[in-house]
Amino acid sequence: MNIFRLAGDMTHLASVLVLLLKIHTIKSCAGVSLKTQELYALVFATRYLDIVTDFISVYNTVMKLIFLGSSFSIVWYIRHHRVVRRSYDKDQDTFRHYLLMIPCMLLALFVHEKFTFKEVMWTFSLYLEAVAILPQLVLLQRTRNIDNLTGQYVFLLGAYRGLYIFNWIYRYFTEPHFVHWITWIAGVVQTLLYADFFYYYFESWKNNVRLQLPA
């Protein structure tokens, strides 16, 4: 475990906590894409299949349980909580996210490390996570005023995989083992998808104005 990896996991944890905080305390999911939350729940469900078979460390298992639990509870809140679901903007959150799942599954069936169920599911989760933010970014472009918590959530979510890239570079130079190239590519694509958001987020922070993405 290196500092980049720990920073990445803590940033990811912070993003989840910010979103849970927003939804649980102010009972609102305005500006939050349910589609992205559903995609992330699927990402964790398909990536952490080994949670019962391969024990790596207490930290690893605890973090997996947190990410699984939080992503599914956020989906539940937005779908079923009697107050929260009223603030869900389903007319704006219209990205057809199954059009993301199908290509990712097809790609995982053709491009993977080993053709086993677990390995294909794991590869699918990497490809899916790379594009999972798209419904949320589309929704932000339609949502005129993005509230701070939602902006912080997306920023932290994008930053975590960026920190993982530094972790992969560090491990490449310091460890005999290596991270599979599929992980590298999916992680870089994922981080690049946030590039324009990061730009506008930084601009709004620098000029101390409300975050707005161009339509």
């Binding site: 690893n60 290596f178 991270v179």
Partner: peptide
Amino acid sequence: DEHHVVKDEL
């Protein structure tokens, strides 16, 4: 083996 791909990340 040397070329062992790690799967210890989240």
